[in-house]
Amino acid sequence: MIHKLLAMPPVWRMGLIILACLVLASAITLWLRRRWPERDLSELTARVRAWWVMATVFFGAVAVSNTLSLVFFALMSFWALKEYVTLLRTRPADHGALVLTFLTIPVQYYWIATGWFGMFIVFIPVWVFLLLPLRLVMAKEPEGLTASAGTILWGLMAFGFGLSHAGYLLQLPSTPGSEANGRTLVLFLVFVVEVSDVMQYVWGKTFGRRKILPVISPNKTWEGFIGGVLTTALLSLLVRFLTPFGVWETLGVSLMLCLAGFAGGAVMSAVKRDFGVKDFGDLIPGHGGTLDRVDSLCYAAPVFFHYLVHYHIKLG
């Protein structure tokens, strides 16, 4: 039995681990509801149910093909950018530039699909950065132009450029001496970041006392942060077969991803506060919008990608 499991391709082994996590989460929710029937656990129930859907869609895309996974990440970028731009105080003169902003997403993912690393890495930070303000200039409305250019380009960097690093992971060649390839690395990244979010939430809800960022994000506590990070580091050892890392490196990398993810979550919380909203949207029951789910990934994906490219994987 164990031999058969170990002989499975890593992606399918990961599928079983995800399934086990979901079953465990549902079982715990059920137990909590039996144990304390008077407590309101509807938010938890909705969150767990949404996790089943999100994990199935994400894992399904990754398992089927790289192209489908890229489409998945492109849709994440598109939907997150859409939630962000909807909340921006855009001017009527920004219309043309906003059309270009959304066109940037399919183009950026097209570079990824063709494996053109050089273009992928400069397209938004260089070319869109240079061209978008020109489109704003063409609208002949200088008042508020700097604010528009700044806010639009920031969103493109976070949700177009940052998040698309998760997509480029899929194009990475397999590393010699391990089972790791682009697909398994994407699974590792998303698993660590999302487990870290969940664990910080669980530890924070259970033991949270001291707030880390009382002004920005009152729900984040030191207890949640430390408990979440340590639990995630331990759990990441369970999925080490997805990576080319040894034990200590796995622990280090997952710690780094947790910190990056936390930073991403904090930044997006601050942005929400600036906009005066609680969530970015209402697409995912119990979670808010897409952006509320991918905020940590926007930071963790580039960090993970550049770590890999620097230390492990030679690009063409």
């Binding site: 731009v85 909807t86 855009t90 906003l98 959304f102």
Partner: peptide, 18 residues
């Protein structure tokens, strides 16, 4: 709400705002 931001008077291409 937001329809005029998505496709204002005179524009041909809508912006995907909620």
């Amino acid at each position: 709400v937001n329809m005029g931001r998505s496709l204002p008077k005179g524009a041909l291409v809508p912006v995907p705002l909620f």
